[in-house]
Computed example of a mutant assay.
Amino acid sequence: MPYTSNADLPPAVRQSLPRHAQDIYREAFNHAFAAHVGDPRQEEASRRIAWAAVKRSYSKIGNEWVASDG
């Protein structure tokens, strides 16, 4: 299901990602969800795509997500 705001994101996403990274996750998830209509793995694919989008701009150092350089 698409997320209308960051408050709607799963608790694990909200608690671990900074606000900007949550924005990236939400936007990528929603776009992927719309693009994979009819796919039985729609939600799983959307989650994977969203995390990949976050990882393009953020790196996990220890237990913290930090913005990547460049």
Rank of each mutant, 00 (worst) to 15 (best):
M1C: 06
M1R: 11
M1P: 04
P2R: 14
P2I: 13
Y3G: 05
T4Q: 13
T4W: 03
N6F: 05
D8G: 13
D8L: 11
P10N: 11
P11G: 05
A12Q: 13
A12K: 08
A12P: 00
A12G: 13
V13I: 15
R14I: 03
R14S: 04
R14Y: 03
R14G: 04
R14D: 06
Q15M: 15
L17I: 12
P18D: 07
R19L: 11
R19I: 07
H20C: 04
H20I: 07
Q22I: 01
Q22F: 09
I24P: 01
I24E: 09
I24V: 15
Y25V: 00
Y25S: 03
Y25M: 05
R26K: 12
E27C: 08
A28L: 11
F29I: 04
F29V: 04
F29Q: 01
N30L: 06
H31A: 14
A32D: 02
A34S: 15
A35R: 14
H36P: 00
V37I: 07
V37K: 12
G38V: 06
G38H: 08
D39E: 13
R41F: 05
R41M: 05
Q42I: 02
Q42F: 06
E43A: 12
E44C: 04
E44T: 12
A45C: 11
A45V: 07
A45R: 09
A45K: 07
S46Y: 04
S46D: 01
R47K: 15
W51I: 08
W51F: 11
A52Y: 00
A52R: 15
K55R: 13
R56D: 14
R56E: 10
S57Q: 10
I61T: 09
I61Y: 11
G62A: 04
N63A: 11
E64A: 09
E64N: 03
E64Q: 08
W65V: 00
W65T: 02
W65P: 01
V66K: 04
A67Y: 08
S68D: 07
S68Y: 00
S68M: 12
G70E: 10
G70C: 12
